[in-house]
Write a protein that binds this DNA or RNA. Sequence first.
DNA 1: CCAACCTTGACACGATCGTGGTAAGGTTTG
DNA 2: CAAACCTTACCACGATCGTGTCAAGGTTGG
Lengths: 116, 116
Amino acid sequence: MDGLTIHQAAELTGWSPRMLRYLERGGLVDPERTPAGYRVFGPGELQRLRTLRELLERFDCGLSDVAFAARLRNEDDLRGELDSWLESEPERPQGVASEDWLDWEQRKHEALLAAS
Amino acid sequence: MDGLTIHQAAELTGWSPRMLRYLERGGLVDPERTPAGYRVFGPGELQRLRTLRELLERFDCGLSDVAFAARLRNEDDLRGELDSWLESEPERPQGVASEDWLDWEQRKHEALLAAS
DNA sequence: CCAACCTTGACACGATCGTGGTAAGGTTTG
DNA sequence: CAAACCTTACCACGATCGTGTCAAGGTTGG
């Protein structure tokens, strides 16, 4: 057997064995199995696991976010509809905020100061 | 004033006023304001809100998912890294599962039956 | 000026997420 | 065969999400 056990993989990637199983349930990793059902992690999987860790921390996002990004790649209609919905976002006035808005912000600050 | 108040918009879109404010906090909608700070919803925003409802139900996803999709559009490096991570996914054997895996599945069923 | 709106902020509550632990049982190895 | 692994299946717990409700106060229209 030329692969690592779940504990060894955990040791080398920084994940806990518990989390490695959780990641598998979420479809984010998919190790091979021995005939007896033991998970076997190869070098590629180790790299993916380390990179995943780095990704999550660097961009401060959750596993469900990554899982959803995976959905976006696989489900074409979801990606399409979602993309066109986001496309239609009416961008706020690109210049300075409207006088009205400034006015409102200003009043808010006054109110805050008055309250303290 | 040629826009709708938050209650009217709620009535017409199926969202609650509470949720409309929540959606705004999440950056998923961004209504104009009157000088006094009252939200003003235009026809475009109403349409977006209805479409959002439909999206969420049709694809069974959450607001945070949509918000994350928005992040993906705006943050190029996030999209890039995430995409290349997903790209590297070692696809499971495209054909039938390996004999080993089948074997394992079979044993699992036996174990389950034996337990009951 | 008063009723009926609107605003923000807070508390609350069930559901899910990310994690850990532990139990019950199969496997591998010295 | 016993120790040290592995497996799945649970219970638990804090954090966050999606929602409702309520309080305290500003705005507006009859």
